[in-house]
């Protein structure tokens, strides 16, 4: 089963997409299976991090920006410096993650949240959630 979710982000957003994923799992009625969360964007990424402290989200973006600063001399000049840096960040972070469904629920650690990171916001964005049942 494939579900699509659309949303708006802010600049450097760390957007909580757990509710979308939980919704997809629930609708699927799958008891045991796998769940793939995927985004079709090239300047965004999907990750898991602790949801307890929002300051941690800022750390995430800050460190990603420290590793890949937005600069004016990227070779990709067709769009903007933010876009060029966003492509690199997205490639390194990845645009999809896989999860386990057990007893009809997503298997997540007690601190784990699933987040969409925007590297070129604010934008209109979307994710897809694919649920596959075990045989």
């Amino acid at each position: 089963m494939l579900s699509n979710y659309k949303f708006k982000t802010e600049f450097n957003d760390v957007f909580d997409i757990r509710e979308f994923v939980f919704d997809a799992v629930e609708k699927s009625k799958v008891k045991s299976g796998t769940c793939i969360v995927y985004t079709p964007h090239t300047t965004a990424g999907i990750t898991v991090t602790s949801f307890w402290d929002p300051k941690g989200f800022e750390d995430l973006q800050d460190e990603i920006c420290r590793l890949i600063p937005t600069r004016v001399d990227f070779k990709h000049q067709h769009d903007t410096p933010f876009d060029a840096a966003g492509h690199v960040k997205s490639s390194l972070l990845g645009v999809s993650m896989s999860f386990i469904i057990a007893d009809g629920k997503l298997l997540l650690g007690h601190s784990q949240g699933i987040y969409f990171l925007d590297f070129d916001g604010p934008r209109n964005r979307e994710i897809f959630v694919k649920i596959q049942a075990d045989n």
Binding site: D79, T80, P81, F82, D83, D120, G121, P122, R123, N124
Partner: peptide, 10 residues
Amino acid sequence: GEVRGRYTMD
């Protein structure tokens, strides 16, 4: 304006 980030690419 776009490159200088005055507004989004969109």
